[in-house]
Design a protein around this nucleic acid. Sequence first.
DNA 1: TAAACGATCTGCT
DNA 2: GCAGATCGTTTAT
Length: 198
Amino acid sequence: MNLPRLHNRYRRDFYTRPAAEVARNLLGQSLIRVTERGDVLGGKIVETEAYLAADDPASHSARGLTRRNASMFEQPGTLYVYTIHAKYCLNVSTDKLGVGSAVLIRAIEPLWGIEEMAIARGQTDLRRLTRGPAMLCQALGVTTADDGLDLVTSDRLAIVPGETLSAAEIATGPRIGISRATDSPLRFTVASSAFKSR
DNA sequence: TAAACGATCTGCT
DNA sequence: GCAGATCGTTTAT
């Protein structure tokens, strides 16, 4: 696949839809990080989860706006980075300003800047580079310092059109690692990918 | 200000 | 496969 370029990135309207729809449509797209040196890191999104608003007890926004989850309520396309178990997770806000829904990007297939990501991870096994939300953040160097950044205008992080998948290539199931709303089918994966967290 | 809790990962078996 | 580490945020006192 060709090296993705920032100016081809998805615009605001891509994120201005219900979280589950964005989560499904993010599969196959390219998540890229441009380092301070100008290197491109990233790969193809293969696993996502949707987190809704007040009606989703598993969502950080279920109990309303707090200092931590404020980015979820920002305009669609805003990066929401939070810490959990002393690690980072990367989300993108969706729907509309003030709603409080987001998509968690759980795994990508490493494609660009693999050597640099391997160094950041302290791990050379391709399959253990970006297989999970915290691994992904470590590989890309994303931290809470990036929370609130706009994926539509940022020169550090963006999502660029990759490949379009057919419905048959996408698997749906319950979200991982949560204790509430464990039956909602809001996890989406590229069925054939070897780079999923499970 | 104290306590509990995770949208997790790693190392060891 | 599983137990244990880990630490910021939230919620309770």
